[in-house]
């Protein structure tokens, strides 16, 4: 009988948590949770800013390579060009190139020229586009592609051989710079620049 009493007494020794223990546990959980949350939030901020920089960096590399190659191949700058109802004028933010046409074998077609237009989108100036308007006998296709998004500024400066600024149609080399908008988590804007001489001028 005494053993049973002992058994009954043992099972009755499980106790609940005191209020103090609960408060301590909740406090520790809260502190740990907040710290984890802070880590996650800042990490995500870093992730967004860095991936933004990565995307902008890749975009700038592609854009400068594209513009540089087109400028090298260009014969001259066109002052104005109307395409699909819109008139483009060469200036600080728009570049219109006269580029020798090529046949299906990639050879230059004598005295035939395509038109390349670099311009900001009218409805959304943060988008920078490249339009290709081929001549009748050119093997190039008409294209309209986005070169950059989130554009902050575009600048084309038209120069002669001595580096003096001239009107677009008299230019023999072009100095350009492209700048992205600063992302919310970034302190600086990404910029790329270059200067290329028209080789077919």
């Amino acid at each position: 009988m005494e053993g049973s009493k002992l058994n009954i007494s043992s099972s009755r020794k499980q106790r609940g948590m005191t209020l103090f223990e609960i408060l301590v546990g909740v406090t520790i959980s809260a502190i740990a949770g907040v710290l984890l949350l802070l880590i996650l939030v800042s990490n995500n901020g870093l992730f967004v800013s860095q991936t933004s920089k990565i995307a902008q960096g890749l975009g700038l590399n592609d854009a400068t390579t594209l513009i540089s190659d087109d400028l090298r191949f260009a014969a001259s700058i066109i002052n104005s060009f109307t395409y699909q109802g819109q008139t483009y004028l060469s200036g600080a933010t728009t570049l219109i190139l006269k580029v020798p046409s090529v046949d299906s074998s990639g050879n230059i077609i004598d005295q035939e020229f395509d038109t390349f237009i670099y311009a900001l989108e009218t409805s959304n100036p943060a988008i920078f586009r490249r339009l290709v308007v081929p001549s009748e006998s050119s093997s190039r296709l008409a294209t309209n592609r986005v070169v950059m998004t989130d554009v902050s500024t575009i600048s084309f400066v038209y120069l002669d051989n001595s580096g003096a600024p001239v009107s677009p149609t008299n230019a023999t080399k072009i100095n350009f710079s492209l700048t992205f908008k600063k992302s919310p988590f970034s302190t600086t804007a990404n910029t790329a620049a270059g200067e290329v001489r028209l080789r077919n001028n």
């Binding site: 880590i39 996650l40 990490n43 995500n44 870093l46 992730f47 860095q50 991936t51 920089k53 990565i54 960096g57 890749l58 590399n61």
Partner: peptide, 17 residues
């Protein structure tokens, strides 16, 4: 784990750039 994945993505992107 989330932080680690993010860091790896950032490092990968940096290498890509």
């Amino acid at each position: 784990a989330v932080v680690l994945v993010n860091v790896l993505i950032i490092i990968g992107g940096g290498l890509l750039v």
